[in-house]
Write a protein that binds this DNA or RNA. Structure first.
Lengths: 117, 117
DNA sequence: GACGATACTTACAAAATTGTAAGCAAATGA
DNA sequence: TCATTTGCTTACAATTTTGTAAGTATCGTC
């Protein structure tokens, strides 16, 4: 849990007021969060399907990031009759597509090529 | 310093190969980094000027983030005759302007308004 | 040639994030 | 009904980031 009395927390709040880009960054940063969003852009997925789709992620962290994404209203947890649930991008989450593309585009151009082995 | 043998580190590397957006995110995330970049979009600044311009930042963290930005080639440290240095955006750093605008734009629309007091 | 400002660095502590390993309840399947 | 699987949660540890406080080297000033 986040400590709301720390200098760290206060600095973050101030930055968000001052710089909307910093706010956006805060909702999409976190290991695997972008990956989850990208997977959900294609289709709704169940917990287990996300786990399958994202090699390396652990259940703990997947659950945690899903919870944060839900808190920030980027995804929805919808009932999938007759049982279980699906994770789905909310309209807000889907509206991030342009931002993600922007990030991807820059990275594709500027990421250093790992030296050939 | 970063431990290059941790699971954490390995996961990050993998993600960068798999998702260029995650790579971009990694170079701009870090408390105050965006703020520094935004200030430098306007003009070159000295260490002390940046410190002045960014209330709340400490010398330690400013130096650290500048070092990272320099390592990632987003900024340059150029000699400012007759003495001292200036920090300047590199062409690569400047090319982030579109990404930053994209982040800002989304944030401006979606950041929850802090409830009026 | 001591004095202060500038631009850092260092040692250390607090906080935040991520990972490891279990556990557990509800639904499913044999 | 009894064992599995699914979708989580919990306790805990390692790692990483950020902050606090002090120190140092270099420069220009007096």
């Amino acid at each position: 849990m986040r400590k709301t009395t720390s200098t760290n927390f206060e600095n973050e709040q101030q930055l968000h007021e001052w710089c909307t880009a910093a706010f956006t960054l805060s909702v999409i940063s976190g290991r695997w969060k972008l990956t989850i969003l990208v997977k959900l852009l294609d289709q709704d997925l169940k917990f287990g399907e996300l786990k399958q789709a994202i090699p390396g992620i652990t259940e703990r962290v997947l659950a945690l990031q899903l919870k944060n994404l839900e808190r920030d209203q980027l995804i929805l947890k919808v009932a999938d009759e007759p049982n279980g649930h699906l994770y789905r991008l909310s309209p807000t989450g889907r509206s991030l597509e342009g931002v993600i593309n922007s990030l991807s585009g820059w990275g594709a151009v500027h990421q250093p090529v790992p030296s050939a082995k």
